[in-house]
Design a protein around this nucleic acid. Sequence first.
DNA 1: TGCAGACATCGACATCTGTCGATGTTATCG
DNA 2: CGATAACATCGACAGATGTCGATGTCTGCA
Lengths: 117, 117
Amino acid sequence: MSDSPDFACCTPLTGTSMSTEQAEQVAPLLKALADPVRLRLVSLIASSAGGEACVCDLNEAFDQTQATISHHLKVLHAAGLLDRDKRGVWVYYAVRPKALPAVATLFSTPAPTGARG
Amino acid sequence: MSDSPDFACCTPLTGTSMSTEQAEQVAPLLKALADPVRLRLVSLIASSAGGEACVCDLNEAFDQTQATISHHLKVLHAAGLLDRDKRGVWVYYAVRPKALPAVATLFSTPAPTGARG
DNA sequence: TGCAGACATCGACATCTGTCGATGTTATCG
DNA sequence: CGATAACATCGACAGATGTCGATGTCTGCA
């Protein structure tokens, strides 16, 4: 996977029927988010100071093993949702700026401006 | 499963860290959407005339078996994303009005109104 | 009553996924 | 150089998931 996907998922679900290609491009993104632990990871990172969080802190916030958390972070990173930054011994993850808004656009109604018909 | 979930997923992911309970409530919703076929199903239904579509038409729009499409529709219906309406021999599915906006809110930034930092 | 069509369900299967313990890799400190 | 700590990777395993063919259920029609 590229390290900087373009988030082509910016076309709303409604309005026009989605192409097979686009669906196959968006699904992995949602699949990465469709897990309670990963959802909380993203939320925790997004709400952290500076928009980033150290893995060591994340490990302590969950009941799962360090290996499991590392796995989930890898999945989120592979999906292009998280940025990874290693500083010395510590690793910081941050939510990719445009990732969440892109997903939000997917589920937004096209354009309520100028309702016609 | 209730036939009318309240879509408690209306709190944005960012801003405040998500609770375990809320995460476990939202994850199934995203899991239901995290499939290319189901994504296209929702999109196709949402963009159909009247906001609903007959299963017979949906079947013809996909390469998968009728049993598979029926399965996916059941998953989406169980997640509270689709409404089911049987009329004679035909069954019509419609996207639940507030379902998609609720998901959109999840991934929206808390409040762009009156940026105050 | 019998038949045909629309859709759901069942049973089976290969594959994917979440989780863990164990181990590997890399950076820091004495 | 050796020890320690932070994080990633590996191998394994139970359970979930997507798909199919076959069959069941219900409706409308002759």
